[in-house]
């Protein structure tokens, strides 16, 4: 399992990376592995407001659906439309396949660094 050190992680398994004040958000390697084959991603629209700790969309694997929880509050600047046709990118490249970019960030969930997140995943088993 891969936990890049340049990212912050939520306990609900999303990652965040800041680029010039914009929060780039995806799901972790642990999350994609637990989900199994991702077959559909329900994305928000550009301009939607997202709230830290609340759902901004969902990912469907063959087995089940899981909410995507926003690690930050703000406004959706961009969504990764490639995921509409190639949701499996979340499995193949979870840290390259970002899901949304959020601007005007006003709030942030309690986020973990890579080491703390890895420990959190180990606890979940």
């Amino acid at each position: 399992m891969n936990y890049p050190v340049d990212l912050k992680y939520s306990k609900s398994h999303e990652w965040v990376r800041y680029e010039d004040g914009v929060a780039v958000i995806g799901i972790s390697d642990y999350a994609q592995d637990a989900l199994g084959d991702v077959v559909f991603v329900n994305l928000p629209a550009v301009g939607d407001e997202v709230t830290a700790g609340e759902s901004f969309g969902d990912v469907e694997s063959v087995k089940a659906v899981s909410d995507l929880i926003s690690p930050v509050s703000g406004v959706v600047l961009e969504v990764n439309e490639e995921l509409e046709d190639s949701p499996e990118n979340l499995n193949g490249d979870p840290y390259g396949a970002w899901i949304i970019k959020v601007e005007q960030v006003t709030d942030e969930e309690e986020l973990l660094d890579a080491a703390a997140y890895e420990a959190h995943c180990a606890e979940e088993g």
Binding site: G36, D37, V39, V62, K63, N91
Partner: peptide, 10 residues
């Protein structure tokens, strides 16, 4: 076994 490492789709 629900799946092997190849995954359900494969």
């Amino acid at each position: 076994p629900i799946q092997y490492p190849a995954g359900i789709v494969a």
